[in-house]
């Protein structure tokens, strides 16, 4: 699957969709594919302050866990509560229904530390 062109990416395989000072964050198709069947996503509390590239949660598949890092810092505005009942959405639709959380940005410059779709493509095919 090609990387959606309207998103930015991190080396840790997360994507960011920017809309003004709000960012929506999820994991990439490559990430969901290498994790396998995702069974649970542990997300931060709404209102929590998070730093760019900080550890904010965990993604669990049947027999593996991986840390979830935020590609951008700020305050957690919302988490995708639907994933509690339907964690498979992350596998099915990682860039849509499988989004993870939304952040109110604290520093617009942080986006300069992220990767373009083309640059991420190079990492994801390695």
């Amino acid at each position: 699957m090609a990387q959606p062109a309207d998103l930015l990416y991190s080396k840790e395989h997360e994507w960011v969709r920017l809309d003004g000072d709000t960012a929506t964050i999820g994991i990439t198709d490559y990430a969901q594919n290498s994790l396998g069947d995702i069974v649970y996503v542990e997300l931060p509390r709404v209102g929590k302050q998070i730093d760019q590239f900080g550890n904010v949660g965990v993604v669990e598949s049947v027999k593996a866990v991986s840390d979830l890092f935020t590609p951008i810092g700020g305050e957690i505005l919302e988490v995708n509560a639907a994933l509690d009942a339907d964690p498979a959405a992350v596998n099915r639709d990682p860039y849509g229904d499988g989004w993870l959380f939304k952040v109110k940005l604290k520093d617009m410059n942080e986006k300069d530390n992220l990767l373009s779709p083309d640059d991420y493509e190079k990492i994801a095919v390695e």
Binding site: V39, Y40, E60, S61, V62, K63, A64, V65
Partner: peptide
Amino acid sequence: TLQAREQHIR
């Protein structure tokens, strides 16, 4: 089940 909570994975 829910083994990803446990020490041998985490």
